[in-house]
Amino acid sequence: MTDPVLSVRNISKSFGALKASDEVSIGLLPGEIHALIGPNGAGKSTLISQIAGGLRPDSGTVEFLGQDVTTLGTAARARMGLARSFQVSSVVPDFTVLQNVVLAVQGATGHWMGFLRPVMKATGLTEAAINFIDQVGLTGRYTIHAADLAHGERRKLEIAMALALSPKAFLLDEPMAGLGVEGTGEMTKLLDQLRHKAPILLVEHDMDAVFKLADRISVLVYGRVIATGSVDEIRTNSEVQRAYLGEEAVL
């Protein structure tokens, strides 16, 4: 059996009386897309924050690449290759597409202590960045300001920035959110290619996309994982149907 790239063990996190994460365990295996679904308020974002490093769990551990990273900060985890996208697109608005990705390329190396040489003339950095931009299909958009991009393009830019981290795992928080039918189709295709680079933990509300992409699905309800399994197992799981979709819904 292969070891998981990322493994969350018995994580709990409370905010006052609210248990946002309740003994959550999730593993991400090499090569897979593991979807995390659940109704609003189930604690998906809290869980993602704990995995990415923005929140420290009250108890439990996060292991990444066989190393306990529970006490490491977000930046250190990113440098190890934990690449994330945000629920609301998060890029540097006044920077061009190219500058955004160069920022990520330089961040991946942890080397920002250069004070005199112009970074955008460092061909090593810009060539790598252009390569990542091309991979997500933003070819030719290098000098557009991120603020002027269409919503779908900004999503792709985030993926390009994630690619720049030499990712060992992707953590994607609702990459389809706000995309139209066409945009969702393109993003689905893109994610299907990404899985060959690194496994993806995918939080997503778009069920069509989830069923198309996911190798495994975990269902989070009220901070607890109530089921983990293949697409078919989850579709037919009566507890999931009750908790997540209401009595009548049929997946």
Binding site: A104, G107, A108, G110, M161, L165
Partner: peptide, 13 residues
């Protein structure tokens, strides 16, 4: 200045 969260997510403090 513009987006510290993003800077952290790409590996810089």
């Amino acid at each position: 200045r513009q987006n510290p969260e993003r800077v952290e997510a790409v590996g810089m403090r």
